[in-house]
């Protein structure tokens, strides 16, 4: 089943010559992980924000479970705001410093009326925290007492607490150290597997996208230049831009790097 269908989505910012997102189409199936990869200025974050309804697209269509997001009424928006949750790059900026972990993770459950009984709501928060590797002992603490990786876990718990159909992650690991990055990537993979969660994953790091995503959209100057399965994009890229991106990604192997350098100098 298709969770998300994006068709010819276009967004142009005032005063710019060309659209930030230009007629982009792709789909996310139930339980699939789709990556959007591109360099800075490629439009990947704008695309994610248009999909999430945080920015109003100029034209095109975004359907979440068949319901149109672009130009939706406030009533319809309430529904998809629960069904689509976002995790942002900077867990220092995305969590309110004045809310405890319990309030942060429980807020969506309360707002969307999923559990009105406060004891049961706390149980729900605790079980969500356990899914991301935290526990009841963290309930009363504030974001400031957590590291970057733990904060990103809290942000993920906050997002999945309302049982969304789609999780949109915009560069969720790019501000984290590599060992913490591995933990968060593994967490997203486990959640995807255990909860059958559909994930739209935006990143500039191609190796990270390859690790997590089953299909990939490659963006350049607002255009989706290539869209295919993980195997096709990484093993048999068709577009010259995708090829040039892949050639530039460093490989942590000195002999491979020596061979690449020799090839470049010829």
């Amino acid at each position: 089943m298709t969770v998300l269908a994006v068709e010819r989505l276009t967004k142009q910012f005032a005063g710019r010559d060309s659209p930030a997102v230009n007629a982009v189409s792709f789909e996310v199936q139930t339980g699939a992980t789709v990556g959007i990869v591109g360099e800075s200025g490629s439009g990947k974050s704008t695309l994610a924000r248009c999909v999430a309804g945080l920015i109003r697209a100029d034209s095109g269509s975004v359907r979440l479970n068949g319901v149109e997001v672009v130009g939706a009424s406030p009533r319809e928006k309430r529904i998809f705001r629960r069904d689509m949750q976002m995790v942002f790059q900077d867990p220092f900026a995305s969590l309110s410093p004045r809310m405890t972990v319990e309030e942060l993770v429980g807020e969506g459950i309360l707002v969307h009326g999923l559990e009105k009984n406060s004891t049961k709501r706390r149980d729900l928060v605790v079980s969500t925290l356990e899914k991301v590797g935290l526990s009841a002992e963290h309930l009363k603490r504030y974001p400031r007492s957590f590291s970057g990786g733990q904060r990103q876990r809290i942000a993920i718990a906050r997002a999945i607490a309302v049982r969304p159909m789609l999780l949109i992650c915009d560069e969720p690991v790019s501000s984290l150290d590599v060992s913490v990055q591995a933990q968060v990537l593994n967490l997203l993979r486990d959640l995807h597997r255990d909860l059958d969660l559909s994930i739209l994953f935006i990143a500039h790091d191609l190796a990270v996208v390859k690790y997590l995503c089953e299909s990939v959209v490659v963006m350049s100057d607002g255009v989706a230049v290539e869209y295919g399965s993980r195997e096709q994009i990484f093993d048999d890229p068709q577009h010259a831009y995708t090829q040039s991106l892949l050639r530039a990604v460093p490989v942590p192997d000195p002999s491979i790097e020596r061979a690449r350098r020799a090839a470049r100098q010829q």
């Binding site: 060992s179 990055q181 591995a182 593994n186 190796a207 390859k210 997590l212 892949l246 990604v249």
Partner: peptide, 20 residues
């Protein structure tokens, strides 16, 4: 740990990353 914590462009996605 550092070497196995980083996803590699030529790596097998089925191989799970290990944190340090």
């Amino acid at each position: 740990g550092l070497l196995r914590a980083v996803p590699k462009i030529d790596g097998d996605p089925a191989q799970r990353l290990l944190s340090v």
